[in-house]
Design a protein around this nucleic acid. Structure first.
Lengths: 191, 191
DNA sequence: GGGAGTGATGGTACTTGGTCCCATCACTAT
DNA sequence: ATAGTGATGGGACCAAGTACCATCACTCCC
């Protein structure tokens, strides 16, 4: 089954992250990334639509989150469906073994405006996916959008804390805590 | 005072928007934009850091919003400070005379992934600026972040409605209405 | 009124991301 | 063996963006 070398994508991602961390995103050329992975520019662009995307896994996250929200127990409140989804991704993608990678990746993005732009787009897509999934559950348009905004903030806070936590906290734990905090900080409607 | 022709930026923006609407962003070259404005590629990049930015006014909006939030009457709730800021930008930048331009611009962005990416980044910057301004008012970190998320949603909804409204509603009016709706759709903290 | 200075513009060469297209290679099935 | 299939290599090409220098329009000042 295995031709040439295995998992070209993974090798490209690893090479890219290494080089970005070493000499910065802008000073790294696609050809260099490919060479370090034993491949060529052509092959790189066959696996990723552009240089940025090598650090972003398509919309796997968005679909996973959306599916988990739809699959949450019927009748629960929007933010409880979100909680269910956060727990799911905590167990399926934000596992302990990937924390180191996530942290390095995050540092590179934080240092690169061009990557922040891509991340902003992904975040927006994520929020839209959450809102859409909530609507599928019957949540009214506006409530879904508001809940999605709160979910996006929760996810961001949880991710940051998960990445930088010294003691190994599971993502799910961190996320539940973050969600409770966000809920507590939500303004009571005065009027 | 006026050399050559006046307002090169404005002419470049107008040329770009026209061409993008005519033949699409991707099929339009920077050289074409410059030529239509009676300028050259060099001059284009002297006025804008890249091709995308010709449709985005730097961070003028973010600073204006942030300043207005800081300048809101002391002691009012976070979302009331936001309301004050929305009213300000409604009177200063989202004026009736600019609605047509905004609508055309919005249509082009909606048709162009590359521009949506830039817009996503701007939206994130806007949210961060709002949160930061609220913190300057003494609003605690978390409350500021939550309020900023709700403000971002409000701004987005109001902007969409303002652009597509048939009868000339002032942006401030639309924004106030949107804010009330968002507040009404905010989940009551059950636990 | 003429010349030095200043800021905006024009033009060219270069690098790199990204596309296209075709040749080639490794492996598989018959 | 042989044909077929899917992944890779390689080269030509275009456009975005950078760097640098020449040039032009206007201002200021003597």
């Amino acid at each position: 089954m295995a031709r040439w070398q295995a998992n070209p994508q993974e090798r490209l991602v690893a090479s890219a992250l290494d080089l970005f961390a070493e000499k910065g995103y802008e000073n790294t050329t696609v050809i260099e990334i490919a060479q370090r992975a034993g491949l060529t520019k052509s092959t790189f662009f066959r696996h990723f639509p552009d240089k940025r995307e090598v650090l972003f896994g398509g919309d796997a996250m968005a679909t996973l989150l959306a599916d988990a929200i739809v699959a949450a127990p019927a009748g629960v409140a929007p933010l409880d469906a979100v909680a269910h989804a956060l727990d799911t991704i905590g167990r399926e993608v934000f596992t302990a073994g990937r924390r180191g990678f996530a942290a390095r990746r995050s540092a590179v993005i934080a240092a690169t405006p061009e990557l922040q732009e891509r991340e902003a787009l992904k975040a927006l897509g994520l929020t839209a996916a959450i809102a859409h999934a909530l609507k599928q559950r019957g949540v009214p348009e506006l409530e879904a959008n508001v809940a999605a905004q709160l979910a996006a903030l929760t996810l961001k806070l949880a991710y940051e804390r998960w990445i930088s936590s010294t003691h190994d906290e599971a993502f799910s734990e961190v996320a539940m805590q973050a969600l409770r905090h966000v809920q507590a900080a939500t303004p009571t409607q005065s009027r």
